[in-house]
Design a protein around this nucleic acid. Sequence first.
DNA 1: CTTATAAGG
DNA 2: CCTTTTAAG
Lengths: 280, 280
Amino acid sequence: MVGRSARLASLAVLRIGTLNVNGIRAADRRGLRQWLAEHDPDVLTLQEVRAEPDLIPEGVFDGYHLSCDAGSLKGRNGVAVLSKAKPLDVRTSMGAKEFAAEGRWIEVDLPELTVASLYLPKGASPDDAERIEAYHRKMRYLPALARHLTKARRAAAKAGREFLVTGDFNIAHTENDLKNPKTNRRSPGFLAEEREWFSQILGPRTLTDVVRALHPDQAGPYSWWSWRGQAWTNDAGWRIDYQLASRALADAAVTGGTYRDPSYEARISDHAPVVVDYRV
Amino acid sequence: MVGRSARLASLAVLRIGTLNVNGIRAADRRGLRQWLAEHDPDVLTLQEVRAEPDLIPEGVFDGYHLSCDAGSLKGRNGVAVLSKAKPLDVRTSMGAKEFAAEGRWIEVDLPELTVASLYLPKGASPDDAERIEAYHRKMRYLPALARHLTKARRAAAKAGREFLVTGDFNIAHTENDLKNPKTNRRSPGFLAEEREWFSQILGPRTLTDVVRALHPDQAGPYSWWSWRGQAWTNDAGWRIDYQLASRALADAAVTGGTYRDPSYEARISDHAPVVVDYRV
DNA sequence: CTTATAAGG
DNA sequence: CCTTTTAAG
C-alpha cells in the first residue's frame, strides 16, 4: 500500500479503506489523523468508534462527511462512514429487531455506490459455557445479516449503484486467513459454522472478497493482531476485516491490502486499515 | 533534600519519608523504585497503595520490611510502612469501628519508635449537597483519630518509644500551607473546622509538625498538586502530607522538606515525598 | 487529570 | 493487553 502521492493524478481511482479503530479517541492519540492525511482515502469506514459523535475529538475527520451510528451502549460498538462525497441517504438498520440500535451497521448511499460499515459480534466458543449466549447471539446475527446483504445489494443494483460492505466480520474465512488455523479450530471467529456462513455470502454474482481476489494464494494479509503477548511482533494475525464488493466494483479493484506499518509505534489500533484502490 | 550519599556516613541519622503514591503500580511505572534507591530512607510510609500486597510489583520494596493494610475496598485507599528494621508489632485499627478495614491507618513498632501511616478521608465541601455524606464522614473521622493519636502516643511513651504519625491528612493547616488560601475557604481540606481540629492535635507536649517547625515562615513546602490544569507548573500546591512527632523526636529533626523534582517527568504521584532526617 | 474498577474485546 | 465506563480523588 503506497501513499496517494505515488499515484498518477490522471488516473481516476477511488480509494476505500476500512478500519476497526478500537475507540476513536485512542486511535486519534495513536496517529489516525496523520494516517488519514497521508493515505487520503475517498471513503473510510470505521468500526468500534466507541463514542457518541460529540465525543469524537475535534478535527479528526476534517474534509469528510461523517455518517455515524453510535448505538445505544455507551462506550461500546459504533460504526461510521467517512466520505468526501456528501451522502444521499444513510440507513442504520440491518433488519433484525434484536440487533437494532447496537451500532453495528450503517449503510450510506453515495452517487454511484452504496457502502456499508459492519461490526459483527465477536461471539464466543461453543465450548465456553459461561459465554454461550454470546455464541448464540452471533449465530442469530449471521442469517439476519445474510438476508440483509442480499436485500441491500439488490436495492443498490436497482438504484444503479455498486454495493460494498466493509468492516470487521470477526470471522477468518479460510486457513489462509489466520496465522494459526490448526490451534484455532474451536476459537470464535474460525468455527466451521462461521466459515460456512462466510462461504455462503460470497459468489461471482453476489459478493467478492476483494483483497483475497487480488491475493488469491498468500497467507493473510492479516488485519487484526491481539494486543496480548507477541502477536504483533510475530505477525500472529487474523484477516477478519474485509471489503466485499458487487461484481463490477470488485472487477475494478486494482490494488488492495492491509496497511501494516513496520514500526510498532505506528499501530493505530489492534486492527490495521484494509485499503483498496478501485479504478472507476 | 539531598541524596543520602551527600551525608557523612559517621552521622547517625534516621531518614523517614512519607508519600501518597496514588497507586503503587502507577508510582512504580513513574519511578518510585529509582527514587527509593537514590534517597534510601530508613522508613518510608505510604498512602493510597491501591493494591493488595500480592498486586504490588515484584521487587519495588527490596531491602525493606513491608507492613500493609490494604483495606477491604479493592483498588482504593491502602496504607503501608516500609522499614529497614524488622517490625516488632503491627496494628491497623484506629479505634473507630466505622473506619476499621478501610486501609487508612497502620502503626508499626520499631525498636525505639512507633511510626504510623495515615490516609485521612478527603471529605467534601459542606456546600456540596451531593457529597455531603463524605463531609460528615470526615467530620466523624477527625475526633476518632484525635482520641487514637493521644492513646497511641501515650502507649509508645510508656513502652519507651518515640511516636511519629505520618501521611496524608487531607488538611492544609494554615494559610502558609496552600498556594491559594483565599479562594479555598470553602474547599475540603481547608475548612475552618478541619484547620481547628489540626491545631488541636498539635502542641509542645503532644505532637509537633516537624517540617513546619524546620521552616516556620515559608509558604509551603507543598506536598500535593492537582493533576488538573497547570497546578504543578505553577506550584499551585497544598501541604497536606505531614510528619507529626513526639517531643524528643521532633527536636531531633535536622533537615526536612518536600522532594519536588524540577522535571515533570520525575513526578511519581500527585503527591511528593515528605522526608525528614532525624539525628538519633 | 489520574488512578483504580468492570466488562468487553 | 488494551479501551471503554464509573467512582474517587
